[in-house]
Every structure is written in structure tokens, then in C-alpha cells.
């Protein structure tokens, strides 16, 4: 079992190294990305910015699944899993916001002083991050671990139920510059095959990195929990 985990971890690390090599290699004919006016080499941000969202979405769903599990079984491990997935999702969300903001500042809003425009995708991600901030604020206000696990799981699921409205309402109210939005060409039409050859592996790679961070933190939290229960047994 342990060996299997180590093998998967090694595969992810090697995979991500190759993705990074692909993302930054230029010159010659191999992976020489087309130069588009305005985008230039910033187009390489595609390999980082977009996978952040995919990873965040995956972890958000994972967090909700374990919240259901937590309510059904009352198991502390489900609570740890749900909490950790939320934490890693916030991390990826903040990274995605940061990479997107910098990218937009030097391309879409070049020459202006804009860092933040209320693009629907951006707003949705920001709201998602705010919801998880509220989730952790709620956790910090509950002392008893069992009660904390249940109430936090309830809030997690309640928030998850309102997310489809964000997906539906925000694009109707705000204009978007992202590809695939109203009037903008779809992602697959404007992206060169050579870039897609790096982009899809990058998506997989970042989801793998998210999974790795998540499992490492879950293992750490579980080990700490066991340690604490052993300590308590020794005291009494």
C-alpha cells in the first residue's frame, strides 16, 4: 500500500517536471508557441492559470462529498478530508486569482491601471474563496470537535447548493472577456495544437499536485489525531 502511494507520488512529480519543461521551452521548432499580438509569451500562463480552476473545482466537489460522508457516518476522518480539501481548494483559488489578475493586467487591460475587473469567472472564484473563508471562520468558532465536524459539514453543503446560481446568474449580469463567453470564440478554436499538447497534461498534472497536497495533509492530520488519542490514553 505504502509503495503504491510512493509510486503514484513519484509519477506525479516526474509528470509535472515534464509539464514545466514543456511550458517554458522555446526556440527551434519543438513547442515553439505561435506569437499572438498582445499575448506574446504570456500565453504560457494558460498552462498555470486555467488548471488552477480545474483543480479548485475538483477539490470543491471532493470537499462536499466528504461533508455528506461526515454527516452520514460521523467519522472524524471524513471531517479531516472535507476540511483539507477545502483548504487546498482555497489555496488553488487564490493562486488562480493571482495568476489571472496579473495576466489580465498586462494583456486585456494593458496601458490602464486595472488589476481587478468584475469578470464573471473572476467574481465566481472570489465568491468561492470567500465562502471557504467563512467556512474556516465558522470552524474556529466551534470548540467541541464532533459538533464542529457536523455544523461545518452542514455549512459546506449549504454553500455547495447555492453555487449553481453563481454559475447561472453572474454571466447574465456581467460581461466576460474569457474565451467561450458570449460572442467570444471558444477555447478550442483559438488555441494552437502545440499549446494544447502541453495544456491538457498540465491540467492532469495540477490536479495530481492538488491530490498530492491533499493526501499529504490528510495523512498528517490523521497521524496527529492518533498521536493525541495515544497521549490521552497514557494520561488516564
Amino acid at each position: 500500500m505504502r509503495h503504491k502511494y510512493k509510486t503514484v507520488r513519484l509519477v506525479i512529480i516526474i509528470w509535472m517536471t515534464l509539464v514545466l519543461l514543456g511550458a517554458f521551452s522555446f526556440g527551434g521548432t519543438w513547442l515553439n508557441i505561435p506569437k499572438v499580438a498582445m499575448l506574446e509569451h504570456t500565453a504560457r500562463n494558460l498552462y498555470f492559470h486555467v488548471p488552477m480552476w480545474f483543480t479548485m473545482m475538483a477539490l470543491t466537489a471532493l470537499s462536499a462529498v466528504h461533508a455528506i460522508q461526515c454527516l452520514r457516518t460521523n467519522s472524524p476522518v471524513s471531517d479531516i478530508r472535507s476540511r483539507t480539501a477545502a483548504l487546498i481548494a482555497v489555496t488553488f483559488g487564490i493562486l488562480g486569482l493571482a495568476t489571472g489578475s496579473v495576466w489580465a493586467h498586462y494583456t486585456w487591460y494593458e496601458g490602464t491601471n486595472i488589476w481587478w475587473n468584475f469578470d464573471p469567472k473572476q467574481s465566481m472564484a472570489a465568491v468561492q474563496v470567500l465562502i471557504y473563508c467563512a467556512y474556516f471562520a465558522l470552524r474556529s468558532a466551534l470548540d467541541d470537535p464532533r459538533k464542529r465536524a457536523r455544523i461545518a459539514a452542514v455549512y459546506n453543503l449549504f454553500a455547495f447548493a447555492t453555487v449553481p446560481f453563481l454559475l447561472y446568474v453572474l454571466p447574465r449580469q456581467l460581461e466576460s472577456l474569457h474565451p467561450g463567453a458570449e460572442g467570444n470564440p471558444a477555447f478550442s478554436d483559438i488555441t494552437d495544437p502545440i499549446m494544447r499538447a502541453v495544456f491538457y497534461p498540465a491540467v492532469l498534472g495540477f490536479i495530481g499536485v492538488g491530490w498530492l497536497l491533499y493526501t499529504q495533509r490528510v495523512r498528517l492530520a490523521c497521524a496527529l489525531m492518533t498521536l493525541r488519542s495515544i497521549e490521552e490514553d497514557n494520561h488516564f
Binding site: I131, C133, A134, A137, L138, A159, T162, F165, L166, V169
Partner: peptide, 10 residues
Amino acid sequence: VLMFPLLIPL
């Protein structure tokens, strides 16, 4: 803190 992010669509 808990309610405002959830109520943005509303």
C-alpha cells in the same frame, strides 16, 4: 460572514 457570500446571486 456566513450569509453574504451565499446570497450574492440573490
